[in-house]
Design a protein around this nucleic acid. Sequence first.
DNA 1: AATTTTCTGATTTACGTACATCAAATTTTC
DNA 2: GAAAATTTGATGTACGTAAATCAGAAAATT
Lengths: 356, 356
Amino acid sequence: MRPTVHDIAAAAGVSLATVDRVLNQRAGVRTVTREKVEQAIERIGYVRDVAAANLAKSRVYPLVFILPSGDNSFMRGLEEQVRAAIGRSAVERTDITVVTVPAFNVEALVAALDEARAGSPAGVAVVAIDSPDVIAAVDRLRADRIPVVTLVSDLAGSKRDHFAGVDNIAAGRTAASLMGRFLGGRSGPVAVLAGSMLVRDHRERLDGFRTVMAEHFSGHALLPVIEGQDDPALVERLVGQALAASPEIAGIYSLGAGNRGLIAALKRRVNAAPVCVIAHELTQHTRAALNDGLIDVVLNQDAGHEVRSAIRVLKAKADGVAVIGAQERIRLDIFLKDNLPFEQDSNQMPAEGRQD
Amino acid sequence: MRPTVHDIAAAAGVSLATVDRVLNQRAGVRTVTREKVEQAIERIGYVRDVAAANLAKSRVYPLVFILPSGDNSFMRGLEEQVRAAIGRSAVERTDITVVTVPAFNVEALVAALDEARAGSPAGVAVVAIDSPDVIAAVDRLRADRIPVVTLVSDLAGSKRDHFAGVDNIAAGRTAASLMGRFLGGRSGPVAVLAGSMLVRDHRERLDGFRTVMAEHFSGHALLPVIEGQDDPALVERLVGQALAASPEIAGIYSLGAGNRGLIAALKRRVNAAPVCVIAHELTQHTRAALNDGLIDVVLNQDAGHEVRSAIRVLKAKADGVAVIGAQERIRLDIFLKDNLPFEQDSNQMPAEGRQD
DNA sequence: AATTTTCTGATTTACGTACATCAAATTTTC
DNA sequence: GAAAATTTGATGTACGTAAATCAGAAAATT
C-alpha cells in the first residue's frame, strides 16, 4: 500500500494538520518541525496522490491558447485540435480559451498575451513570433508565475517553460539531405520558399537546409529565398515567376505554408523536367499532391500531439510536477506516398473506443 | 459546474443508491427505472469523474507484459521502457509484471499467456508470434474478459483489443521507396535480411518492400531473403557470404534485428562500391552506424510510446472507456543522420521537470 | 388477501487530500 | 516569570464516487 498523509504524520510524530501545513507550504511551522516532516516524507517515500488532491481542490486549469488567424491550413488544423481538447475538458479538468490574432503581427500578439495575463490563467500556450516585444510580454506572464509553452515556433531568449514543437533545424537538414539524395545525379539549382523570416521556425528550417546543402550538395545552387507570407495567391504568383525565370530548377523546398499556391503553380507546368519538391505540414492539399506525385516528401509535425503535449506540460508546470521528457518530444514525421497514414477525422472516436 | 451523481438522482427522481446501481450495472433495478436514469444521464450530460471513481475504488490495474528474452537490443529497450513505467506505477495506479520468453518459441509464449490468465490481471500486453496456438491462447484471455494488446507484432485473426505498433506494410513500402530513390541511377541487386518469417511484422515489412520494389524499381533484382534469426553472429556470417557471392549488391534492407552482425559485415568490406543500407530500430549500434555513414536510413518505432500507449489502452479497456484514437497511433520514425534525436537516458527526468 | 420476491430509498463509511476553525501547548519577548 | 506571540493538535467538512446495509415499498405469486 502506498503511504498517505496519515503515514507521514505517524512517522514524523506530528499531527495531520502539521503535515498538511508542510505539504502545502502554509505558514506556522517551525523549521525543525518542517525538517522532521520532510525527512519522514523522504524516508517512507510518500508521493502525493494528484487525483485525490485535485478532487479535494476541485481543481480546474484555465488555459489560454493563442494562435494565428487566417486560412493557413496547418494553423486551422491546430485550432481544431485545441477544440477537440476542449471537448475533453470535463475529463481533463481544463477550461480552455482560444484566442486568434493576425499572423506575423507583433502588436496584436503582445496585446493578446497581456490580455491573457489579466485573466490570470493556469497556463498559456502561444504560437510565438520572434520579437523582443513578444519576449517581454511572455516574461511578464512568467513574472506572474503563469507557465508559458511556445507552440510550433519557439521564442529563444524568453523565459518560456517549454517548447512544444519540432526541432526545426533538424527539419531543414533532413529536407536538404533527402533533396540531395533524391536529386541523385541530376543537376540544377534549388529554390526555397518561405513564409516570413519573422518567425523562428522558418528561419531555423532555412538555416538547417542551407547548411547541409552547402556541406554535401554544393553542386546545386540555392536561388534567393522566396517569401510568400504563407499566402497561397502570393505564393502561386512568386513560384510561377521563379519557375519561368529558371526553367532548369531541379528542386523546391517549401518550408512554410501556402502550399496550395505552390501546388497550383506546379500543376500549371507542362512538358517540363521533373522537380523534386519537399514541403512542410500534412494538410488535405499536400496529402493530395503527395499522392499525385507533385510533392515527393512532406515533413510534418502532428498538431494533435503538440496540443496534447502543451496541455500536459502546462498542467504539470502549474502543479510543479515532473514531466516524462521523452513523451513530450515532438517528432518530425517524414511522409512519402508510401507511409501516409489513413485520413481520419480527428474528432471522431474510434470504434474500438466505444463502451462495451 | 459539472453534473454529479446527485444531480442524476435529482433529475431522474430516484435515489442515489439507484443511480449507483445503474451506473455500476448492479442488479436490482427495473428496466423502466433504469431507462429513466439513463435518460437523465443523457439529458444533463453526466460524465463519470474517473479520478474520483478510482479513488473510491482504490483501483489498481495489475498488468502483465510478455516480451521475448535474448539480447535483441530493441526488445531490451522495450523492456527498459516497461520498467520505466513500473517506476511510475504509484502515480498511474498500475502493478506491472514483466515476463520474458525465448524468442520465436510458440509453446513458451502460449504457456506464458495461460499463466498470465491464471492471475486474472486487468490486462495483458504481448509481443505476439503469429501462430494458431497463440491466437487460441489470446482468445482464451479475451473469453475471460481480460483485455489484450499486441505489442510491436500483431496477431491477425485473434480477438486482441488493440495493436500498439507501427504499420509494418507501410514500413516496408517506405524502405523500398527510399531505397529506390537513393539508388538513383545505380544498378545492382538488393538484398533483404530478415529475422524470421514466423513473426508477422517481418513478413509484412517484406511484403511491403517487395510490392513497391516490383512496382517502381523493377530494375533492381531482389536476392533471396536471408533469415538471420535476429542473431548478430549468424547475421554477420550470412551477410558476409551474400556480399562475397554478389559483390555487385547495391542495397541491403534489414527488416529484423541482429544489426550488429550486419554492421560488422559492412565494416569488413574494403574498396567496395557503396551500398545503400536501410535498417530497422534505432539502437546504440544502428545510431552509430548511421552517424558513420554505414547505414543510410533507420526506420524506427518508439518503444516508449508503444509501452505507454499499451498501458493507456489496457486501462481504458479495463474501464470500458474511450481512447483518443490519434494519440494511440504509433508512428513510423524515419531517421537520417540529420534528424537523429539527441541521445537520452530514458529513465532520466528532464531538468525542466523538477519541482520549483 | 396474504405471502413471497423483487425493487427502491435512506444512510453511512471509505478513498486521499485540502482547508478551516478553535483550543492547547510551546516559545519568545520584555 | 508573566504576557504575548507563535506553533501545534484535534477535529470536522468537503471533493465525487463506490459500496454496503437495512428498512420499506411495490410488484409478482400463491
